[in-house]
């Protein structure tokens, strides 16, 4: 469906995208996972023909796509990171306007507008102006516009940024549903959980380069000899983390809300030392989980920094 080869884009001295390549098959959901400024938005801007490339090639169904190309763009639906809708038009008017740009026949457009309003759960607010909507409703309309012309590939650029948990979950469910219906999806995010939940394959991107690519399991294999120990705890967590970093076999230590994540070679060999070090640091442990490494750990291992950086 979509193939990007060696995409390159620089802004002055900064190489925002430096040789990014990936492909997405029909019906596949592909995620670009990386922190802010990693090059995700620039990559997809080139992939959908929004931005001129300094180098590389984009193929949609085997045909080259450039910013000046018009016909191929009809195969792609874009959901930009920022809301992209007209606040003074109603939900229906927004959908109809963009539908007309895709040359949809009048009858089909009317039908499709109703279908999409149903999908995004805005049928009862169809004739209300978008500026009267909540943030979550605007996000759903934003996605609906991208879906309207029934594209073969849907490109979503961090669609859940700034969305409340309830709306976020509704959005993720919609995307899961679309993926299961055979739509190819390119999804960018810096939320590890979203990438793990939605994506068949994930490209880990940092500083304009794809550092690793594969299914979640394939990526976890990068750290196959490691275990992830999650310690729910209270007390001076950062002091405890410092103590853990001095233990042999501990690869990474990451402090999150009320917990310390430890990436360690063979958890069974180091667990007692870990618990002892935390106890000596004054940290009270309330729970211990041992699991295989998650994408956050993989990302940290590959880039040396956290997804939240």
């Amino acid at each position: 469906m979509l193939e990007c080869r060696d995409l390159r884009k620089s802004f002055g001295e900064l190489a925002a995208v430096d040789g990014v390549s990936f492909h997405i098959a029909a019906g596949e959901t592909y995620g670009l996972l990386g922190p802010n400024g990693a090059g995700k938005t620039t990559s997809i801007s080139m992939a959908v023909g929004l931005m001129q490339r300094d180098g590389g090639q984009v193929l949609v169904d085997g045909e080259p796509l450039d910013p000046g190309t018009t016909k191929l763009k009809a195969k792609i639906g874009l959901v930009p990171q920022d809301l992209a809708l007209y606040p003074d038009l109603t939900a229906r008017e927004n959908l109809r306007f963009f539908g007309r740009l895709y040359d949809m026949p009048r009858a089909r457009l009317s039908r499709r507008v109703d279908e999409v309003l149903e999908i995004i759960g805005l049928s009862d607010r169809a004739n209300d102006r978008a500026d009267t909507f909540s943030g979550g409703m605007k996000r759903r309309l934003n996605i609906g516009i991208g879906l309207l012309h029934a594209p073969g590939l849907l490109v979503l650029d961090e669609p859940t940024v700034g969305v409340d948990p309830q709306s976020r979950n509704a959005i993720l469910e919609s995307i899961e549903q679309l993926g299961s219906e055979g739509l190819a999806v390119l999804y960018t995010t810096h939320y590890m959980e979203e990438a793990e939940r939605l994506c068949d394959r994930i490209g880990i991107i940092d500083r304009g380069q794809i550092k690793a690519e594969g299914t979640r399991r394939e990526l976890a294999q990068i750290l196959s000899q490691h275990d992830r120990v999650r310690l729910s705890a209270t007390g001076p967590l950062h002091e405890g983390a410092e103590a853990l970093r001095r233990i042999a076999g501990v690869q990474q230590v990451d402090v999150t809300d009320g917990a310390i994540d430890v990436l360690v070679e063979q958890a069974g060999n180091s667990l007692m030392a870990i618990l002892s070090a935390l106890d000596q640091s004054g940290v009270s442990i309330t729970g211990v989980e041992i699991d295989e490494p998650n994408l956050e750990a993989v990302f940290l291992h590959l880039t040396g920094r956290s997804l939240r950086d």
Partner: peptide, 15 residues
């Protein structure tokens, strides 16, 4: 400002 320019540019219409 409203982000809709990107949608117009991504649509199959000549610039």
């Amino acid at each position: 400002h409203f982000g809709t320019l990107n949608r117009l540019l991504a649509a199959p219409v000549p610039r």
